[in-house]
Design a binder for these strands. Structure first.
Lengths: 346, 346
DNA sequence: GCCTAGCATGTAACCGCTTACATAATCTCT
DNA sequence: AGAGATTATGTAAGCGGTTACATGCTAGGC
């Protein structure tokens, strides 16, 4: 209570040296059973908790992993973090979690703090795949795995989703139904969202429907989606018999749906909408949303697994994983069946 | 690259002792300016990052706070964590985040791990306000603040919301509109949800409307909410001219709404529904949900602030904060105006 | 009975910092 | 000029563990 117990306290009480206590606590085999029991019971009795701080200094390993995500309160990243935590806990590691707020400078700062804490490895969702942060880690020889972003650098491990494929899936579905026109609302260039758009566009074109396709850039938020509807109407983009709209995230898709409802445009009979991410309640939105889903949880797990590998074997071959996205068909899209609540009473 | 630089490397290069380097790095004033500059430029040049592990051992402080929440992927807790992180970062602390999955045994285990890491303090959303965990921390003299839960123990600091008041607010709104019957769907006894119900019930009764009130227990999930609708109908609970239903969380409320829609019962004209929490998309649910909101972000901030106080001043008077909840009125409730999307084009 | 092997434990250096105390150098004041 | 105060730096003892190496002991083989 008054003063933290230390190993030498236990050693003194047991009438042995600290070396022996240390051996017992780290399961070293070379200890007589009787001694071991005596020490363990003292440890239990006095509720001694060994200091990892001291141990870390001595062993030069911390069993701590730094995790840097863009936004800690964003469900996407937390789903990710949960997968990470699962694996780390199983391997006896703890997690130093921080968030960069999409700011590269802050990201680099956080990495530096993690290095000072001598973390054994880092998992991050980088703002940019190659940056000061990765440079710093490489220089310090700290193993790291990039999440939700792929790197062109051959030597870095990453776990991400195949965004191009995700866009392709959406296009594929739309092509199967007999839509007469396609709209692609893309996000910021050179980011995951634009890869999604790219996949969509490529698939449409390669089916010879490029002429029925229009593309809009910089549509990123719910409000962007809502606000673009009137202008689409003005440009006669929605008066075709049936139009398919692909958006690179669910927020935009929901904005669009809201806009369509406000303008009394029937969904999905006249306009089909496909989003991306399957954020919470996409499933239970006013019009349940067809969307492309990423396996966030596995992404976290796989990344953590890979990091564990890297830590154990420094010249382990970097894994470059691209998870396959999956299309979830719901009411917002022509092909869908009618919506039933998940657990409807029969 | 090959070997981590240490302070004595820098000291040797600068031709001084480690003590001087240490003084420079911790902004001790008693160093000649010229010496300071020389050292700092060497530090910068060689990108030396001091080891917090060693520093922590030496100073017996880690500037690390353990945070234990129930579920790391739950938006509520992450909103909380974000508030926490903000304050910690501002104060130069890092966060060791873990989640207990509502398991008291695991919670206690996590706390023990945190203690071994010699965290300077702990923030937790305890499964139960008094438990092995709090006991362990008290015994070790580690300052802690309880979040989202109030404790009867005079000596523990907590930051929570006034759940009774939240329930009362819901009742107040319902009483102002001329509803003829009230339903209260409560969660698990002895938890925050039941306090909410308690506040609701008390307010209804104290307005002499106890006879128009029915209470159901153990309704906790979306599905519970959905499934209870038919039985309410069967027991003629909803055939009154207008009924108000209070649920102790938004999931239940959404389930109820879904059930009502499925049974073609008009909302809010025949039944009004009020939820609790304002989870994401409550605002944009099929029927925008009237709900009681908690200031999660401030809760995290306040708790972290309090912990900082506690750390600086060991016999600081424990703060016992009960934040006021706020009622957000939306379409699911009679008193509401018609729903307009947040950014509707004029 | 002696040598050697193997087991159980102790000794002490080390991990990379901080900091109380000692020391040296410079300044101030009578 | 010398005492005392002040400033800048060095010395070395921790902090609480780990672990290579040394040591003592017991037992087996000859």
């Amino acid at each position: 209570m008054s003063k933290q117990l230390t190993m030498s306290d236990i050693a003194r009480m047991a009438g042995v040296s600290t070396a022996t206590v240390s051996r017992v606590l780290s399961n070293h085999p070379m200890v007589r059973e009787e001694t071991r029991d005596r020490i363990l019971s003292l440890v239990k009795e006095h509720r001694y908790e060994p200091s990892y701080v001291a141990r870390n200094l001595s062993t030069r390993r911390t069993h701590t992993i730094g995790v840097v995500v863009d936004d800690i309160s964003n469900p996407f990243f937390m789903e990710l973090a949960k997968g990470v935590e699962l694996v780390l806990q199983k391997n006896g590691y703890t997690m130093l979690l921080t968030s960069s707020g999409w700011d590269p400078a802050k990201e680099a700062d956080l990495i530096r703090t993690l290095l000072r804490n001598r973390v054994d490895g880092v998992l991050l969702t980088p703002v940019h795949p190659e940056s000061e942060s990765t440079e710093v880690m490489r220089r310090n020889g700290v193993p790291f795995v990039v999440m939700n972003c792929h790197s062109d650098n051959e030597s870095v491990s990453y776990v991400s989703t195949d965004n191009v494929e995700g866009g392709r899936l959406a296009a594929e579905l739309m092509l199967r139904t007999n839509l007469t026109r396609f709209l692609c609302l893309s996000g910021v260039p050179h980011q995951s969202t634009s890869e999604r758009a790219e996949g969509f566009i490529h698939e449409i074109r390669s089916h010879g429907r490029g002429n029925d396709l229009a593309v809009y850039d910089e549509v990123r938020t719910f409000d962007d989606g809502y606000n673009i509807v009137p202008s689409l109407i003005a440009r006669n983009r929605l008066d075709a018999v049936s139009t398919g709209i692909f958006t690179s995230n669910d927020f935009v898709a929901m904005g669009i749906l809201e806009g369509l409802i406000a303008h009394r445009i029937p969904v999905p009979s006249q306009v089909s909408v496909i989003g991306y991410d399957d954020i919470a309640f996409a499933e239970r939105y006013r019009i349940p949303l067809t969307t492309v889903i990423q396996a966030k949880h596995s992404m976290g797990q796989l990344a953590a697994d890979e990091l564990m590998e890297l830590i154990q074997d420094r010249n382990h071959n970097p894994a470059r994983l691209l998870l396959k996205p999956r299309l979830i068909v719901r009411d917002s899209c022509t092909a869908a069946q009618s919506h039933e609540p998940r657990s409807a009473v029969p």
